Amino acid sequence: MGMSIRNQLAGTVTSVATGEAMASVKVRLAGGQDITAAITADAVNDLGLAPGSAVKALVKATEVAVATGPVEGISIRNQLAGAVVGVSTGSAMASVKIAVEGAELTSAITKEAVDALGLFPGSSVVALIKSTEISLAAA
């Protein structure tokens, strides 16, 4: 099945904390980074997720924010350090490709943000992703 979601990161579940309705699933990506996905408890059960499960973390490009360094004092837990490998801009929006250890992410942000952050190939950046914006697929 083809998907329009550009960001598909392979990883392994390291822990699952399930509550009444929601679960926090920690995933170690192929590049060694840890991310957290907040998904429903039903999804954990339906996918049979447990430590050691192979998964793909799926993130829409519109849900990847970009910062020029680590951000403190913010609720976003998923912060992946990387470098810009490409920027494509239109009149209003831009697509920024970011190489992180073991993977590549695409972020859809405004052209104004690209200009304000001074993004260009080679720029050091941090990709920010809310845990509620990560979906998991059993691999």
Rank of each mutant, 00 (worst) to 15 (best):
A57S: 11
I39R: 01
T40F: 01
K97I: 10
A137L: 06
G48V: 07
A127R: 01
T40L: 02
E104S: 06
A116D: 15
E101D: 12
M22S: 11
A116W: 02
G102Q: 13
D42N: 12
R6D: 15
Q8T: 13
V64S: 00
M3V: 15
T36C: 02
K97P: 01
V87W: 09
S15I: 04
V71M: 04
L80V: 03
I76C: 06
D46Y: 00
T36I: 12
V16Y: 01
P121M: 09
T14S: 08
A137H: 02
G102W: 01
K26E: 14
G86A: 14
G82T: 12
L47S: 07
A43N: 13
S123Q: 08
E72P: 14
T110W: 01
T14C: 13
A103N: 15
T62S: 04
F120L: 13
S24T: 04
V71H: 10
P121W: 08
E104L: 06
S88K: 06
P51N: 12
E133Y: 02
A94Q: 10
V100W: 02
S24D: 04
S131D: 06
F120K: 15
V85N: 14
A138V: 07
R6M: 08
S53N: 12
G122P: 05
P51C: 07
E63V: 05
M1V: 12
V66Y: 04
G69I: 12
S15G: 04
N78F: 07
P121Q: 07
A81C: 08
A61I: 13
S24Q: 09
P70T: 02
G32W: 03
V125W: 00
A99G: 14
A99H: 11
S53Y: 05
S91A: 06
D42R: 13
G2I: 10
E72Y: 00
S107Q: 15
T89G: 01
E112V: 02
V125D: 00
S95M: 06
A83V: 12
I39T: 13
T12I: 13
V25I: 03
I109Y: 00
T40S: 10
A23P: 11
V96T: 09
D46S: 15
S123E: 10
A43D: 09
D42E: 13
S53L: 05
K26S: 04
L117F: 05
T132S: 06
V16M: 06
V25L: 00
G69C: 12
T18A: 03
A138P: 08
I76S: 01
A99L: 02
A17F: 14
A99R: 15
L29D: 09
A139N: 09
A67S: 14
S4C: 05
L29A: 11
G86Q: 15
S123L: 13
